[in-house]
Design a protein around this nucleic acid. Structure first.
Lengths: 230, 230
DNA sequence: GACAGTAGGTGTACGTCGTACACCTGTCAA
DNA sequence: TTGACAGGTGTACGACGTACACCTACTGTC
């Protein structure tokens, strides 16, 4: 009886919140039903009373992250509004290192996902985009709608260290085989020697604004998929 | 002794080729070391003589797909050249339904990956792009470098069929909650009623050309990340 | 032809995973 | 008082990746 209050009952929200916290700490790939259950002081099968399957759990976790997106100030024009909302999505995703990959691997259109898409489409429409053009620009934004673009240039995980000689030989071969890759990689590092690699935030906004500017041009030109000036 | 020639020996290439074929037929998620070994008439552990781990296997499979990319005609200008190479990558990826997701989930820069990136960067450079701008446009292309953009609008897997009444209620709620999503989705279907969903190829080229045109504008303007006109 | 070295295939075993299924238990409505 | 039911338990199964010790058949050398 001393144990009366020893555990508040589980719920879907509690399970999802714990899963998100666990993934934040140890990475998604380390989140197993067994480990999550252990973390909640419960037996693995107990989770299935609140979550249909591990897939459902992952979907729910993505929803939690996407639920952190803040709506844009309705006073903003379409361009600033879309920009603000996308950047808010980006902040949400960056808060959870695993989220990017998790979103990429799911396709379920949950209410949260649909609400986000609807809000963006609504801003285009209110900004004077035709239904047709809205459709295409949503496609063009692609993953950027979630606030991320791919990890092409990310630091690779460090392997075991090589001897200086080996390393030098490797670099030399590299420069010869992939001169342009080396060129742009070193340029990026030189621009800000403090940090190797790229300023992801800059790259993201660069591409985003390039697209938004392109959208605006098509809008003012009255672009339609049926052909020019239709 | 009648069995002398019953099996040509395995090799990394044979293993990878079989894995790709198997993934084409049954999907990547169904490709396990055990099943792949079985398919090759061999015991699971035999694969490890040719492949370091399952991760290595996946990397190798991606490499096989990316190896199908054809180099662009060097006579083409940068814009047509980049366009051609990217569309060739797209064709390669579409040939293997699982490849899109597999590429997204790997970050290893294999020689094939680097060669592709180098070829693209080289075309930008030859087309008069500064190192700086080349770097940023490569980022902006993002996943499109692999010939795909995300699957936002893809058909969801069909669940169990609902009664007409249920379905109608669902649609009604949907229309009310996500009016803009419905709007653009139905527009797409009406444009070509034969097929629900979107013309992915059109959407891809739409976004690609939007970006390429934007790149060209920046190039002629002498854009630099240091600021306008630098 | 004898023989060591080695590349490549085998067999067994371990720990981990998701989850089906039968069961128990505490709460609350009637 | 009862009995339905939401929610937590325990056991078990089949699949997974892969470590490790082993065997086998071919190679080049003398």
């Amino acid at each position: 009886m001393a144990e009366r209050t020893r555990r508040t009952p589980l719920s879907r929200d509690r399970v999802l919140a714990a899963a998100v916290r666990l993934a934040d700490e140890v990475g998604v790939e380390a989140v197993s039903m067994r480990r999550l259950a252990h973390e909640l002081g419960v037996v693995p099968m107990a989770l299935y009373k609140h979550v249909a399957s591990k897939d459902d759990l992952l979907d729910g976790m993505v929803d939690v992250v996407l639920g952190e997106i803040e709506p844009a100030d309705p006073a903003l024009g379409w361009q600033d509004g879309v920009r603000a909302r996308v950047l808010s999505a980006r902040r949400a995703v960056l808060r959870h290192a695993w989220a990017r990959r998790a979103i990429e691997s799911r396709t379920r259109r949950t209410p949260t996902v649909l609400a986000h898409m609807d809000a963006l489409a609504g801003m285009f429409r209110a900004g004077g985009f035709s239904v047709d053009l809205t459709h295409h620009v949503m496609h063009a934004l692609g993953n950027r709608i979630w606030g991320f673009s791919p990890e092409l240039f990310e630091e690779p995980p460090r392997g075991e260290p090589l001897s200086p000689a080996e390393q030098e030989a490797l670099v030399a071969e590299f420069v010869q085989r992939y001169p342009h890759v080396v060129e742009i990689a070193t340029a990026a590092t030189q621009a800000d020697p403090a940090r190797a690699g790229c300023d992801e935030q800059f790259e993201f906004e660069f591409a985003l604004d390039l697209l938004l500017d392109g959208f605006e041009r098509l809008r003012t030109a009255g672009w339609s998929s049926a052909g020019p000036g239709a």
